[in-house]
Amino acid sequence: MLKLKYNFSLFAFATAIVILSCVQKATNSKVKSSLEKANFEAIVNGDSTHLFTLKNPHMEVGITNYGGRIVSLLVPDKNNSPLDVVLGFDNIQDYLAKPNSFGATMGRVTNRIANGTFVLDGDTIRIDKNNGQHAIHGGSKGWRQQVFKGNQRNDSTLFLSYRSPDGESGFPGNVEVNIQYTLTQNNALRIDYTAKSDKKTVINLTNHSFFNLSGNPQNIVLDDILFVNAGYFTPVDSQAIPTGKIVPVLNTPFDFTTPIKIKDAIKRDSTSEQLRFVSGFDHNWVLDTKGNLNDPAASVYSPISGIKLTVYTDEPGIQVYTANTLDQSQKGKKNIPFRKYGAICLETQHFPDTPNKPSWPSIVLNPGEKYHSTCIYEFGIE
């Protein structure tokens, strides 16, 4: 893979603007993506929302402190034309209109918790049920709907922080979380999460960006070439709750150990019960990377644009979701409807419903301990 290279200029460092509050100062009200910063200025839950911009000579990332969301992500295609490769909206009101996950930080616990309950030190914890009889992505007051405090120090780094009060969505403990977004010199967006709690609790964070590397959400991703560095996955029941089993991917549609078009993997068994349960892929893979940030966890490549996204993480799992529930009822940037299979999500994580699966890697955070998780989205041309 040919990686794009760049160097920070001394001038950029010398003129970097230090932001000590959520208010981002900028000399231009527009970014390359044509997003209007003014359209992200609002008062939500009593706090101010804003649009922040990270950029280098080849990439630009728009992030709002509402839900810690990646709003836009511009990368050059094989013709050196910038493409926005994430789904999202061009104003804060569309994010507020209907609960959604586009580009958001998922917490306190990403993914599903069966029946919205789990036992912690003998106590039954009850989480808001916001997915039928189950809880998903932190419950009804999950962090995707909260406003973070922003601190942008330069063009390459953004810090977001949030204090989650004891009892929020039913979770115990006051939790302080910090997220650092860094646009690196090898054209990657690195996300570092840290958190601490004053009570024993559970934490499992991820970013829920919907990627379409063709730059057009009307193009389905089933023609993209996917690699997942995992010999096993966790099957689900008809309500998308993990059964507790860990099974081999060999000879199933879930085998992406060799890069393959997503639609060709499906053809191995298009009648698979697992595919039918969720109308495509919405499953957790058990990574073989053993937490090594230098070992690719997954990659996806668009033959249309030539853009390849490689994911690195220190997490034990990754959720691959092929936007099975999008139905064109919502329209995003440039008024383009979101269609079924019009994106792919690559969510680094501990396994779903882990609080109810004692044999799986734990997400318990004790007082005095520090939670840390890293996800790297690296872009290049192939």
Score class of each variant (00 low, 15 high):
residue 140 S to D: 15
residue 179 I to H: 02
residue 326 L to V: 02
residue 260 I to T: 15
residue 368 G to A: 11
residue 16 A to V: 06
residue 76 P to Y: 11
residue 338 F to Y: 10
residue 91 N to T: 05
residue 87 L to Y: 02
residue 78 K to S: 07
residue 280 G to T: 11
residue 291 G to T: 05
residue 130 N to Y: 03
residue 181 Y to P: 02
residue 55 K to T: 11
residue 64 T to F: 12
residue 279 S to C: 10
residue 165 P to N: 07
residue 292 N to V: 10
residue 285 W to C: 03
residue 369 E to R: 04
residue 217 P to N: 02
residue 109 V to P: 00
residue 209 S to A: 14
residue 258 T to C: 07
residue 56 N to T: 09
residue 6 Y to E: 04
residue 50 H to R: 09
residue 381 I to E: 03
residue 78 K to D: 06
residue 369 E to P: 01
residue 12 A to Y: 08
residue 208 H to Q: 05
residue 39 N to F: 12
residue 242 P to K: 08
residue 68 G to F: 10
residue 35 L to I: 04
residue 377 Y to W: 08
residue 228 V to W: 05
residue 174 N to K: 09
residue 193 Y to C: 00
residue 33 S to D: 12
residue 255 D to T: 09
residue 162 Y to E: 09
residue 152 Q to D: 10
residue 310 T to D: 00
residue 227 F to L: 11
residue 26 A to K: 12
residue 189 L to G: 05
residue 361 P to A: 08
residue 235 P to I: 05
residue 19 I to R: 14
residue 374 T to C: 04
residue 8 F to M: 14
residue 303 P to T: 08
residue 18 V to W: 13
residue 90 D to R: 10
residue 185 Q to N: 09
residue 8 F to P: 04
residue 336 I to H: 00
residue 346 L to E: 09
residue 261 K to G: 11
residue 132 G to C: 06
residue 235 P to Q: 07
residue 147 V to Q: 06
residue 227 F to M: 07
residue 361 P to S: 05
residue 125 I to S: 01
residue 142 G to R: 00
residue 193 Y to F: 11
residue 245 K to V: 02
residue 230 A to E: 04
residue 29 S to G: 11
residue 138 G to R: 02
residue 238 S to V: 09
residue 34 S to E: 12
residue 233 F to T: 09
residue 381 I to R: 03
residue 263 K to A: 08
residue 131 N to K: 07
residue 27 T to H: 14
residue 313 T to W: 06
residue 170 G to C: 02
residue 255 D to C: 10
residue 198 D to S: 06
residue 270 S to A: 11
residue 254 F to P: 03
residue 354 T to L: 01
residue 362 S to T: 08
residue 261 K to F: 06
residue 370 K to V: 15
residue 84 D to R: 03
residue 272 S to C: 01
residue 210 F to T: 00
residue 312 Y to S: 09
residue 157 T to Q: 14
residue 267 K to L: 14
residue 80 N to R: 12
residue 348 T to S: 12
residue 378 E to M: 08
residue 287 L to K: 08
residue 146 Q to G: 04
residue 276 R to D: 14
residue 211 F to A: 02
residue 373 S to Y: 09
residue 265 A to W: 07
residue 308 K to E: 15
residue 14 A to T: 12
residue 371 Y to I: 00
residue 209 S to M: 05
residue 252 T to R: 12
residue 239 Q to I: 09
residue 91 N to C: 11
residue 96 L to K: 14
residue 372 H to I: 07
residue 102 F to C: 05
residue 147 V to A: 04
residue 41 E to M: 12
residue 51 L to Y: 04
residue 158 L to F: 10
residue 282 D to S: 07
residue 77 D to T: 08
residue 327 D to T: 00
residue 328 Q to N: 15
residue 242 P to M: 03
residue 127 I to S: 06
residue 190 R to G: 03
residue 65 N to V: 12
residue 91 N to F: 10
residue 47 D to C: 13
residue 123 D to H: 15
